[in-house]
Simulated scan of single mutants.
Amino acid sequence: MSATARFALPLLHPGQAQKELFHNEALTLADALIQPCVEDAGLNAPPSAPAPGQCWIVGESPGGAWAGEAGSIASWTAGGWRFSAPREGMSAWIASEGVAARYMSGAWHAGRVTATRLEIDGEQVVGPREAAIDDPDGGTVVDLEARAAIEAVLDALRAHGLIDPG
């Protein structure tokens, strides 16, 4: 085995000459991949004046020095571009947008949070979407103001995706 299984970091071999080159290459890639922060996502052409240590998430139709690297994390180093293929569940911070991106099902998804519930101080505040709730209808005494308030609450819950629009 000449590289690690997940991110293809180069491994050293007994008796290998110039081990420092392989060690430094592994450190360079680890520097880009541990808690990654990218300048931007979705670019298809490399920036004209990158600084060492800057990274980008390559777009879907890359060209030039990024050709063939769609979806990869492109890192600029003193030795040129280094590309790392993302792994399922990997996250990166997109500095230009101020949001996190997660690699899921073969694509990057920026600004999306996926969870089964949201808790604050141990209390669930949002859980799975509940079934649709019908608008008020019928009754022997119709209070138009109360009915309008209930409909407004239901509309807001539907708009936020908390209950099924039905």
Score class of each variant (00 low, 15 high):
residue 1 M to T: 06
residue 1 M to W: 03
residue 7 F to Y: 15
residue 8 A to L: 09
residue 8 A to H: 07
residue 9 L to P: 08
residue 11 L to E: 08
residue 13 H to W: 08
residue 17 A to Q: 13
residue 17 A to T: 05
residue 18 Q to T: 05
residue 19 K to L: 04
residue 20 E to K: 07
residue 20 E to H: 11
residue 21 L to T: 03
residue 21 L to Y: 03
residue 23 H to C: 02
residue 23 H to A: 13
residue 24 N to G: 07
residue 26 A to E: 12
residue 27 L to H: 03
residue 29 L to Y: 02
residue 30 A to V: 00
residue 34 I to H: 08
residue 35 Q to K: 13
residue 40 D to I: 02
residue 42 G to D: 12
residue 42 G to T: 02
residue 46 P to K: 06
residue 47 P to E: 11
residue 51 A to F: 00
residue 52 P to L: 02
residue 54 Q to M: 10
residue 56 W to E: 10
residue 57 I to R: 11
residue 58 V to A: 12
residue 61 S to L: 13
residue 62 P to W: 09
residue 62 P to T: 09
residue 62 P to G: 08
residue 63 G to R: 05
residue 64 G to V: 02
residue 65 A to V: 03
residue 65 A to R: 09
residue 65 A to D: 15
residue 66 W to D: 07
residue 68 G to E: 09
residue 71 G to K: 14
residue 72 S to D: 12
residue 77 T to H: 13
residue 78 A to F: 01
residue 78 A to T: 05
residue 79 G to P: 00
residue 79 G to T: 09
residue 82 R to Y: 04
residue 82 R to M: 10
residue 82 R to N: 13
residue 84 S to G: 10
residue 84 S to A: 15
residue 86 P to D: 11
residue 87 R to C: 12
residue 88 E to C: 05
residue 89 G to E: 04
residue 93 W to H: 10
residue 93 W to I: 00
residue 96 S to I: 02
residue 98 G to R: 09
residue 101 A to Q: 08
residue 101 A to C: 13
residue 102 R to D: 06
residue 102 R to V: 14
residue 102 R to T: 15
residue 103 Y to H: 15
residue 104 M to I: 07
residue 104 M to G: 01
residue 105 S to A: 15
residue 107 A to M: 07
residue 108 W to M: 10
residue 110 A to S: 15
residue 114 T to C: 07
residue 114 T to Y: 09
residue 117 R to C: 04
residue 118 L to I: 14
residue 118 L to N: 03
residue 119 E to I: 00
residue 120 I to W: 10
residue 120 I to L: 14
residue 121 D to I: 01
residue 123 E to H: 12
residue 123 E to N: 07
residue 124 Q to E: 15
residue 124 Q to L: 04
residue 126 V to R: 14
residue 128 P to S: 13
residue 128 P to Q: 14
residue 128 P to F: 01
residue 128 P to D: 08
residue 129 R to H: 02
residue 131 A to V: 03
residue 134 D to R: 13
residue 135 D to C: 05
residue 136 P to H: 10
residue 137 D to S: 14
residue 140 T to P: 01
residue 141 V to A: 12
residue 141 V to K: 11
residue 141 V to C: 05
residue 146 A to N: 12
residue 147 R to H: 05
residue 148 A to K: 12
residue 148 A to L: 09
residue 159 A to Y: 04
residue 160 H to G: 09
residue 160 H to T: 04
